[in-house]
């Protein structure tokens, strides 16, 4: 099953390579990986989505935890969490189909951020599922290029209880 794991670490290229090496060396899957600075200087947060049975996921989190510069590893999968991905999608769009595309854009609450006589570039945020769905809706028009960030995720704090 799919897991979303959040990793906080002291930012250095060596750490980044160690994380990537762990996955390639031990044959773990990575579906997506995204990385940026975290709330404190020198810290980075990585969100990665991966698949595997319980034992593999347990190994992944334990092996990540073993790396010296990693400060925290959280498997968000079984906790309430918010997840977003940003995608830029460039679609062929002759004037005749532009209106149709713009309708799809508004359904997905996306934005058009660039336009040319032959194409539109769409900015979209949402869960990976939403991004996938919108891409498949746009496919018939001809997708020229896409750029996706991969998921970023945080634990949801207010859980309706307490």
């Amino acid at each position: 099953m799919k897991h979303t794991i959040s990793v906080t670490f002291e930012h250095s290229f060596n750490t980044l390579s160690r994380i990537a090496g762990l996955f390639s060396g031990r044959g773990f899957n990575i579906d997506s990986i995204s990385l940026g600075t975290a709330e404190k200087e020198g810290l980075a947060r990585m969100t990665l989505t991966t698949r595997g049975d319980e034992r593999i996921i347990e190994q992944i989190t334990k092996q990540l935890n073993k790396l010296i510069n990693i400060i925290k590893v959280v498997d968000l999968t079984f906790e309430p969490f918010v997840e977003r991905e940003l995608a830029l999608i460039k679609v062929s769009a002759s004037p005749s189909v532009r209106m149709e595309i713009m309708q799809i854009v508004s359904i997905f609450r996306a934005k058009i951020i660039d336009i040319s006589p032959k194409s539109l570039t769409i900015e979209l945020t949402g869960s990976a599922d939403k991004v996938n769905a919108s891409i498949s809706m746009l496919k018939p028009f001809g997708i020229i290029e896409t750029a996706r960030t991969g998921s970023v995720a945080l634990r949801r704090e207010f859980q309706g209880k307490t």
């Binding site: 034992r55 347990e58 190994q59 334990k62 092996q63 935890n65 073993k66």
Partner: peptide, 11 residues
């Protein structure tokens, strides 16, 4: 001492 070696091969 190593959490990662627990239940790696054998539960």
């Amino acid at each position: 001492i190593d959490p990662a070696s627990i239940s790696k091969n054998v539960t």
